[in-house]
Design a binder for these strands. Structure first.
Lengths: 246, 246
DNA sequence: TAAATAGTGTCTATAAGACATTATCAT
DNA sequence: ATGATAATGTCTTATAGACACTATTTA
C-alpha cells in the first residue's frame, strides 16, 4: 500500500488533527445567546462534561469541504440549514488539544430564535443549552471554563459580530423572515448593547434598500407595524458609516 | 504503540493534510504586487512548475501554532519578521489537493517595498517573483493558472485588503517606517486604484491620531514634506467612515 | 379619551468632497 | 521669477443624532 513513489508524494510530516466548530448566535428572551453542548463524561475524552462549541472532527468521507462540514454540524444541532454562516478564523497550536497538534476551523452563524422543538432535536438534548452573552464583555455570562480554547473562539465571535453589526445588516438574520422595523432595531440594540435612535435607524435601513414591504402588519394594543422582509437574503448589506451613539 | 485506550482517545477519522499559505503584498514600482513562488519540477509533485503562494505543510515539530508557522514561511521568503500579518481564512475540501483531503490556513501580510537583496535570499531565488495586481479586478495580471486553489485565495486577499483600506490604516504597513503624508496617500491610492482628495485625506489621518511627526523632511526640487511615523505600529486604526470618491 | 407604539419631520452637528490659495523648496 | 509639490482654508453637501410631533390601534 505504501510504495516508495507514494511515500515521496505524501509528505512525511505528522498530520495535525482537524476539526470544525460553529459559534451559533440567536436572540432568545431579549438576549443574545450562544449555543453550547456538554462534552461526554468518558474520562479518556478531553474535557469531560465541559461545555464546548458544537463541532468536531472533519469526516473526510462525509464532508466535501469545511463549509459543508460546518453546515452539517449546524443542521445536527439546530435542525436549520438556510441560515447565515460565515467563517470566523482558525485556531491551531501544539497545545490546544491534549490529544496532539490540532487546528480548528471556526464558523459563526446567526439564526432566528428557534422554536423549542428545533433545539431539542437530537439524542443528547439535555446537554445542549443557550448561554447568555454578557452585555459588557465579549464573553458568556457563565464563569464555567469551556473546553479547549473555545472561550477564546467565542470571544472572537462576539467581537466580530458586534463590530460588523455597526455597519452591516447582520441582525436581519436574527429575526424572523417577516419582521417589523422595530423588531429589527431591537435586534441591533440587543447585539450592540445600547439603544439606537429610531429616526436615523429607519432612514438608514430604508435608504440602504435592505428591506421590502410585505402585505400585512403586526399589532398589539397600539398602532400596528408594517411588516418587511429582506430584499435579498443571500448577502448582508454594508452601510457607508457606522452607527453612532444612543 | 496503539493500545485500545489510545485508539479510543484518538479519533478514527482520516486526518486531512494541513498547510499554511501566506499572501504577501508590497507596493513596488508604484504598483500593488503579490509574492509567488514557483513549485518544483518533480512530476510526482502536484502542480509542478506552477506559481503558488509561499507556504506548505505545518511542521508539528517546528511550529508551535498556525501563526508561528505563517511567520516562519514569511521569514524564509522575505527575511522580514516585524510586519503586518493577519489571518485571511481557511480553504479546505476533498479535491483542492490531488494528494487527498486538505485544508490550508491562509494569512495575509503587508510589507514595505523590500530591497532587492531581501527577496533574493533563499536558495531558489529565481523561482520567486512579485506579480502585479490588476487595477480593475481582484486578481494577478498574469493569466497563468496558479497551483491548487491559490488563485481564489489571492482573490480573497485582494478583496479583503481593498475593502479594509477603505476604513483602516493598513497602507501604513506598505510604506517605510518614516514616511510623508503624500507617500501614505499614494499607498492608499495604489491599493484602492483611485485618487483621493488631498485635503480630506490629511484631515482624516491627522484626526485619527494615526501618525506622529518626526524630526526631518523629505524633499526634491520642491517644498520638502514633513516626515511622520506610526504612533503605534502594533494595531491598525479604524476610521469612522469609509473613503468616498476621487 | 387615554395609553402605547408606529412613523415622520425639523433642526443641528459633523465630517467629507471640491477646489482655491498660500508656503517652501531647487533651479 | 518659475515650476513643483506641500500644506491649509473655505464652501458645499451628505448623513447622522436629538427630539418633537403626528398617526393608528386597543381598551
Amino acid at each position: 500500500m505504501k510504495s516508495p513513489a507514494r511515500t515521496r508524494k505524501i509528505p512525511k510530516f505528522d498530520r495535525p488533527l482537524t476539526t470544525v466548530d460553529v459559534v451559533i448566535f440567536a436572540v432568545i428572551n431579549d438576549a443574545l445567546r450562544v449555543l453550547l453542548v456538554k462534552r461526554m463524561a468518558q474520562p479518556d475524552e478531553p474535557f469531560p462534561e465541559h461545555w464546548a462549541l458544537p463541532g468536531g472532527f472533519v469526516d473526510t468521507s462525509l464532508d466535501r469541504s469545511l463549509e459543508a462540514c460546518a453546515l452539517r454540524k449546524l443542521r445536527e444541532k439546530t435542525g436549520m440549514s438556510r441560515v447565515y454562516l460565515e467563517q470566523l478564523g482558525s485556531w491551531g497550536s501544539r497545545d490546544r488539544d491534549p490529544r496532539g497538534w490540532s487546528a480548528t476551523h471556526a464558523y459563526f452563524s446567526l439564526i432566528p430564535a428557534p422554536s423549542y422543538d428545533d433545539v431539542v432535536a437530537g439524542a443528547n438534548s439535555a446537554d445542549v443549552a443557550w448561554f447568555k452573552v454578557s452585555d459588557r464583555r465579549a464573553e458568556i455570562e457563565s464563569k464555567m471554563p469551556m473546553a479547549f480554547d473555545h472561550g477564546s473562539i467565542v470571544t472572537a465571535a462576539i467581537e466580530r459580530l458586534r463590530s460588523k453589526v455597526e455597519y452591516t445588516s447582520l441582525p436581519a438574520y436574527l429575526v424572523d423572515k417577516e419582521f417589523t422595523l422595530s423588531e429589527l432595531q431591537r435586534a441591533y440594540e440587543i447585539v450592540l448593547g445600547r439603544p439606537l435612535d429610531k429616526s436615523s435607524f429607519r432612514t438608514r435601513v430604508l435608504a440602504a434598500d435592505l428591506v421590502v414591504e410585505v402585505l400585512g402588519v403586526r399589532g398589539g394594543q397600539n398602532r400596528p407595524a408594517q411588516l418587511y422582509r429582506l430584499r435579498s437574503s443571500a448577502n448582508p448589506v454594508f452601510f457607508p458609516r457606522t452607527f453612532r451613539s444612543a
